[in-house]
Design a protein around this nucleic acid. Structure first.
Length: 207
DNA sequence: CCAGACGTTGTT
DNA sequence: GTCTGG
DNA sequence: CCAGACGTTGTT
DNA sequence: GTCTGG
């Protein structure tokens, strides 16, 4: 799962390989130590072939919706996103990157009243890029952009805490995930797998 | 045919 | 306990 | 995902 | 918009 994550305040510039061409994206990420569903988050989408940062609502409102529903769409199961009515068009044509510092999982502790948050980030401290889907809906006469984070089975590290985990893309896959020409769903599906646990680190935090 | 759903996680 | 809002 | 609310009538 | 259930 991924229901809360953190976005670093510093401004890294990232590099994407799209169709053999390198693109640099200047990021200006608003700092957030605890981003929650329904809040505005920064994602990277392709705009006329160029990767750009874009702010949208976390919690995908499908193109066919006419109002922001009560459904839980902050995560999309990678196993079914390709065929589910709410996500399939986005899975095939509207993928995005969700940059973050890391995400949280809460663990229940014996005799403790509150659950304890654990923070998961990349072992080398670099920016984490989660696999996202986005969509555009017409709500009250206005375009609403929104996104969701794709989930999969956990690796051995995250699996100690939860049975679902966000899909985390390695840098060499960032461009391909964004590429609209890559619309063969079975190829996209290859990216939906847990990141190797040795590439991640975990620590207890307070929020 | 029309009406209504379209989602995830976690917990039981 | 369960729903809503962030 | 977690945190916080969860209710009504009437009066100011 | 498209599929499912009635």
């Amino acid at each position: 799962m991924c229901g809360r994550y953190a976005v670093a305040g510093h401004v890294p510039s990232i590099s994407l390989l799209l169709d053999g061409v390198e693109h640099r994206v200047e990021l200006d990420l608003p700092e957030s130590g605890n981003l929650a569903p329904t809040m505005q988050g920064a994602v990277i989408v392709l705009e006329e072939g160029v990767p750009v940062q874009q702010t949208m609502r976390w919690g995908l409102v499908p193109h066919f919706a006419r109002e922001i529903g009560k459904y839980s769409t902050f995560n999309a199961r990678g196993e079914t996103a390709a065929t589910s009515p709410a996500y399939r068009r986005s899975f095939a044509q509207r993928r995005c990157l969700v940059p973050c510092a890391g995400f949280y999982e809460w663990a229940k502790v014996e005799d403790a009243k509150k659950k304890v948050p654990h923070f998961f980030s990349l072992a080398d401290g670099s920016m984490m890029m989660m696999a996202g889907l986005w969509d555009r809906a017409r709500i009250d006469g206005q375009d609403l952009l929104s996104y969701t984070i794709v989930t999969t089975t956990p690796n051995d590290l995250v699996g100690q805490f939860h049975h679902r985990m966000a899909v985390i893309l390695q840098q060499e896959d960032w461009g391909a995930w964004l590429d609209p020409d890559l619309n063969d769903v079975s190829v996209v599906q290859e990216f939906v797998k847990p990141l190797a646990p040795e590439l991640m680190q975990e620590r207890v935090v307070t929020l």
